[in-house]
Design a protein around this nucleic acid. Sequence first.
DNA 1: CTCTATGCAAAAACTTTGCAGGGAT
DNA 2: ATCCCTGCAAAGTTTTTGCATAGAG
Lengths: 125, 125
Amino acid sequence: MNLDQILENKNVKLTPARRSILEILLLSNKPLCYDDIKDKISMDKATFYRNITKFEEQNLINSFESNDKKRYFEIQKALHAHFVCTLCNKVECVKDYPYFSLDKYVIDNIIIKGICAKCNTANNN
Amino acid sequence: MNLDQILENKNVKLTPARRSILEILLLSNKPLCYDDIKDKISMDKATFYRNITKFEEQNLINSFESNDKKRYFEIQKALHAHFVCTLCNKVECVKDYPYFSLDKYVIDNIIIKGICAKCNTANNN
DNA sequence: CTCTATGCAAAAACTTTGCAGGGAT
DNA sequence: ATCCCTGCAAAGTTTTTGCATAGAG
């Protein structure tokens, strides 16, 4: 999947800022927040959030709020679930979690909240 | 399930403010945010959030962030999923959504994000 | 009396908006 | 010349913290 395919038929001009955001999200194996992306490239938060809003309007990406109060974004290549640890705030993709359709509902994302293996082990020591 | 049972062995004194919060959450059939609760009883946000924090520390309630950037709280009687509509921000419980354990992970909550039946119908008109 | 709970006000954290400058078409 | 993208600064929203008062044991 490349950016041209992704932007096909979408009303989004591919500016350098947008290219950067999309490339970083494409290369990432987990959802990223503004801080994650700002660490990789210099970009004002207004630019970031305005472009993110546009991407979401065009269904190019989806997002969710994690436990750390930040929004995390990703280009979802195939619908899959996400795990958010409520102790260490780690976010990871859960590729093999089954999902089911709900009558007349459109499912965009599944977020599983709980305690990750590492924190769980640490907690029980 | 009553408040005495819920607070059994928990290090939480049952003050009037706490009783109000817990009773409202117990009676609700869906997760509630601070604004929802403030509509029902007068309570300062500091008091609310401090008590909510204490409840969460004692695993009396759990919470998640919805699309409207607010945290929603509930007393979860049995693990079940929640649906959050990304268009109208409605939050509802999905009792019959199947869930699966993840090896070594503790699952506290499942949030399904998407478009609810009503918004979906409205959108396709 | 001491310890905790509460309310008000201020701060903090993340996101959004206003506005002006700059580039592309 | 117009449109829209970008960055800075300011505002907005939700949640948290500081502090003084009130209340329970």
